[in-house]
Amino acid sequence: MPPPPPGVRADLEPVFRASYPRVVGVAARVLGSRDEAEDVAQEVFLSFGRSTVPAGEADGWLCVAAAHTALNQQRTRRRRVAREVAHVRTDPARGGAAPDAAEAVLAREERRRVRDALARLPRKQAIALVLRHSGLSYAEVAAALGLSLGSVGTTVRRAESALRKELNHDASSD
């Protein structure tokens, strides 16, 4: 294999090949879109390519970076949608969804509510929850977030509880 171009880590390709599916999976859990998750993965691997993170710590670093980046993207989207909805509400010429699309809209809305509630959780809890539900073991979550192995379960349970409270709060304010 030829040497990498200047400024590119020599270990980028093997790390990319080993970690890409997991990184996309973490981002997809947050965003609900594989296409958007692949964009996040590209951004994360570009950052990794410029980093000095040891290859042995790459998987955890990449998963945390994917969760952070996806949560940031989700927050940005939420703010943009709020602005767009405010604009539609003030413009009577704009209509709503077609009646035959009601079920699809409700399902999308529910997924959006979960992702928005996740984005309102404390960052460490949100990332622990996303990583754990993306298939990482307690040991991998602990290593990725710098937690003790014993505190991962507590952090995940607290995150799940906080997520339920956020969802219940949303439901009661509708």
Rank of each mutant, 00 (worst) to 15 (best):
A171C: 06
F48K: 00
P99H: 13
D100H: 15
L12Q: 06
G32M: 06
L129M: 05
R94Q: 07
G25N: 08
V114Y: 06
R77D: 13
V64R: 03
S161Y: 10
R158W: 12
Q125H: 08
Y20N: 09
L163R: 03
R111Q: 04
V85E: 04
S161M: 11
P99C: 12
A27I: 03
E38G: 03
L167M: 06
A101D: 15
R108H: 13
N168F: 13
A55E: 09
A143Y: 07
P3V: 04
D91S: 08
V8I: 15
A70P: 01
V141F: 02
A128C: 12
K165T: 12
L31M: 11
R158F: 11
M1Q: 11
P5R: 14
E38T: 07
H87L: 15
A159H: 07
R83C: 05
V40C: 03
P92K: 14
V23M: 04
G135D: 07
H68M: 11
L106W: 05
V85T: 07
R123T: 12
A27K: 04
K165H: 09
V114D: 06
T90L: 08
M1A: 14
A93M: 09
A144L: 03
A93C: 07
G153V: 01
V8W: 12
T69V: 04
T154P: 05
R79S: 14
A126W: 02
R112H: 04
A70I: 00
E110M: 03
G95Y: 09
T90F: 02
T154L: 06
